[in-house]
Structure formats: C-alpha cells, structure tokens
Amino acid sequence: MIRATNLTKFYGGKRALGPISFEIEDGETVGFLGLNGAGKTTALRILACDLRPSAGSIEVGGADVVSAPHEVRKRIGFLPENPPLYMDMPVDDYLIFAGELRGMDRGAIKRRLPEVLDVTDLTSVASDAIGTLSHGYRQRVGVAQAIIHKPKFLIFDEPTRGLDPVQIVEMRNLIHDLKQNHTVLISSHILTEISQTCDRLLVLGQGQLLGSGTESELAIRESKIMQITVTVRTPPATDSGNPTAFVTKVLETVDGVTEVSPPFATLDSMTFSLATSSDARAAVTRAIVEAKLDLLKLDYARSELENTFIRIVGGHHGGN
C-alpha cells in the first residue's frame, strides 16, 4: 500500500506540489492525470525516492521514503519520462547492471533476464547497443530495467511519450500484462491512455489533488448530467394510443430524468435519448418493465473524460 499524507514539495520558494494526501491499495493501477506543471512528475519522483519531500510523509509498502529510502527503492521500479539508459551498453549488459544495482546477484539476474526480455519483447535486440535502438525499443528497455528486480510497485512517468500509434498500443498491452503482478502508477496527460489503462485516477492541478475516483465517478461527481439512450420495441397502437406519446410519458415520469428527446424510430423500435441529473439507469429500466414495454437496449453516454478533465482542472489553471 502507498499512503501519502500532506505531501508537499517546494522548488526554492515555489510550491510545486501539495499538500496532498492519497492512498493506493495493493494491486491497483492508478493514473496521475494533469496538465503540464500539475505536479505529476514531482509526486512520482518523490515516490521513487529520486526527490525528497519538503514536508509531509509518504510510505511505500510500509517504508517511509525519507527515513528508509533504500527499503522503498528495493520495492519500486521507476520509469521516468526519459528512460535512464546508457546508450553505449548492450541491452542485456544494461539490464544486468540495473539488476546488480538493485542488489540482485548475477545468478538471479541471469535466470530472470530471459523472462524480462520476453515480457518486454526485447529478446531479438538483447545484444544490441541501446543507442542503436528505436525510441519504442528504448522505452521498452526502460520498462525492462524497472521490472528486472520484480518490484512490488511500478511507477511509469508518461510511458507512451513520443511513441507512434502502434508503439502506444504495444506499450498499453505491456502495462496491461504488468498489472497482473504489480501495483502500477502511471502519469500522463494523454487522457485516453489513462482511461484505458487505469482502475482509478488522481487528478492533479497546480500541485493540488483536484479529484480522485474512477472515470465514471469523476464524471458523475463533476457533471450531474448523464445521457441515457434507451431502445424499446414499439408498442401496438391499439393498446396504448399513440405509441410515441405513451413511451415518452413513461420515461418523463422517472425520477432524475430531466429531458426526453423525440425518438428515432425504426419499423419496430424507438430509441429515446434522456438527460438525467443522476445515474437513473435502474429507475428507467424498472419504469419500462412496469409499463409492460419490451426493453431492447439501454446505454448511457458517459461524460467524456476530456470534458470531465477540463471541467476539473479548468478552475485551477489560471483561466486557460
């Protein structure tokens, strides 16, 4: 578990972070989301013991980053924004070096190395100098050095920065694989990356924690408006008068529904778009069933993460 309490960092006289407090449970994949300068990298560097906090405390797996930094360092694997690579070294030598730095003996590293090369898809370039590799491969080497010593916690700062679309998908898949065995913290301002990879988000703005929760929770919390799209089988006209008016009336009476748009009708179905002030999916379903209508499909259009993000940080970014 990671527990930060009133974590604060000053650069000179300028406050870069905090005070912020948060907890991350074992096995979670948490995204630090924020604009440039929001404090994401500072928070992750403190977690990785690359920086020391100015105030507050942070524990990683029960060890304090200030009083027991070596214990913390043994438990974390850190991939900074620019992977910490030695361009003159072959990939396998570099990974052996990284393992030895983390206190592994050569035998253990030799046994672990094939697995790490396989997971990161580096086997084919294992003996190549890092300086000759493409950006995507270098990023993979950065991930490999972070996992060589089987750390419990992985910290990735902007892991897809500078990658092409194919490499982004590959990196995302790699992170998905790593989630099985590690607690993963990722920072990014690329919203789709965060939303597709993380279980939970911590939204930072100007060094402050502006929000925390899943994407849906943040969307609901920040915007009480949800769009529900519901499709029902068109009822026979003889039973209910005008079918469109009947279904519209049923939907309008549901608690939380603020607006029902005119339906899109096909031969045997009607699709309505509802604006709601809360998560009214269950109530809408019940109302349709109680009115003896056939529910064919119900979906809700979540507030887009981009919109949520902009709303959350909007008031904290100097009017930008």
Partner: peptide, 13 residues
C-alpha cells in the same frame, strides 16, 4: 544531462 543518473538515484545505492 541524459537522465541516467535517475537509475542510480532510484536504486538502493
């Protein structure tokens, strides 16, 4: 300058 100091700084060294 090239960022590799981070590897040393974040290792138990």
């Amino acid at each position: 300058a090239n960022g590799s100091l981070v590897l040393l700084n974040t290792s138990p060294v």
